[in-house]
Computed example of a mutant assay.
Amino acid sequence: MIFHDPLAIRLLGDEADAVLACADAPGEQGFRQFMAVRSRIAEDKLALAVRHGVRQAVVLGAGLDTLGLRNPYAAEGLKMFEVDTPRMQVWKKRHIAEVGISVPDLLTFIPVDFEKESVKTGLVQAGFDLHRPAFFSWLGVTPYLTRKSIQNTLSFIASIPQAELVFDYGEPVENYQGLGRLFMEALERRVALLGEPWVSRFNAPEMATMLAEAGFRTVTDFDRARIFSYFGWPQKSGVGQASAHVIHAAV
């Protein structure tokens, strides 16, 4: 098992069966596996950060992420902050109440529109300490934001002492080949029809430059080959091809 989330099915509620059926459809399994991979890497890095004394963590663009609700480090006093759009947070809080999941005392919801409002301001108003180390998780978000918004967020995170960040990004669709290209083109059309088109995708050198300019000193880019190595999976054909990436960056 790559990743275990005891609240995921409960959070889906009545929609669980339909969502799982779609996730098992042809072509979707690899995408589902990547979502598990990125969460596993993020929570592995969070565990190390907590071990080193970090006591505040931020989930940016949380969506249906359950990390704040699960908080594996509540006993250590880890404060969790969830940042997302006001509309999403209203829906999520109502939904978790409907399915009977309680909100931990150490979790704070912060409504912020990344394109229009300051993440920094929202966090400070909610009690986040700018002068203490922090861990940031930012999964499944950057493709939907402008490059300016991404750069601003990266620069803010890099201003936090001993900050660590795990996030993911996608390569340009034209980098893909064969069936992978067809799947990515279909997925691109689908998210656009849902009103959430992909806005920003990056080649690895572009992302490395953006992170360096923001102020991150240590960066590990988990491409397909590095992900296989991280989990001890045997390398197979296609490992060198285009893929989604997971970044672990630290200042």
Rank of each mutant, 00 (worst) to 15 (best):
T146C: 08
L187S: 09
T153V: 08
A16L: 05
S137C: 05
Q151T: 10
T85A: 12
F183A: 07
R224I: 03
M210V: 09
F81T: 08
V54Y: 06
M184L: 07
L64Y: 15
P234I: 02
Q235M: 13
G215L: 05
R132P: 01
Q29I: 15
D44A: 15
T85S: 15
A74M: 15
P172A: 03
Q33V: 15
K92F: 11
I227F: 00
A225T: 09
T85P: 03
V199F: 03
R32Y: 12
N175K: 12
A192F: 05
L139Q: 00
D223C: 07
A8N: 06
A16G: 04
S200D: 07
A75M: 15
R201Y: 03
V219Q: 04
A74V: 15
K116I: 06
E188F: 04
T121V: 11
D65H: 14
G13F: 00
G178W: 07
K116Y: 07
L139D: 00
M88H: 10
L193T: 06
A36W: 08
Y169S: 00
V19Q: 01
P234K: 04
P133H: 02
G195A: 07
A49R: 11
A75I: 15
H131T: 07
L67G: 11
V99R: 05
V251Q: 08
R94H: 14
V99P: 01
V199E: 09
E115L: 08
Q29R: 14
M207C: 05
E174P: 04
Y230E: 12
L107V: 08
K79W: 15
V191Q: 05
S243Q: 03
R70E: 13
E76Q: 15
A25N: 11
Q56G: 12
K93P: 01
E171D: 07
H245E: 02
H131D: 10
S237I: 12
A186Y: 03
L67T: 14
N175G: 13
E117F: 06
M207E: 04
L179P: 07
V173G: 02
V199W: 08
R70S: 15
R181C: 05
A212E: 13
L69S: 11
M207F: 03
D223L: 05
R147K: 08
V19D: 00
V37L: 11
V239G: 01
L46N: 04
V37F: 06
A49S: 14
V83G: 03
P72Q: 13
N152T: 14
K236M: 08
R226N: 04
V59D: 13
Q89K: 13
G215Q: 09
Q235H: 12
E15K: 09
F231C: 05
F135E: 00
E174F: 10
V19Y: 00
G232V: 00
E76T: 14
S229K: 10
A74G: 15
C22K: 14
A242D: 01
V90W: 14
R55T: 10
L106K: 05
A42W: 03
V103Y: 02
A242F: 03
L139E: 00
P111E: 09
R181M: 05
V50W: 09
E117M: 10
P205K: 07
A25R: 13
P104W: 07
S118E: 03
Y73A: 10
A75Y: 13
F31P: 01
G238Q: 02
I110T: 01
H95V: 06
S159R: 07
M35H: 08
R32S: 13
G180N: 10
H4Y: 11
A244H: 06
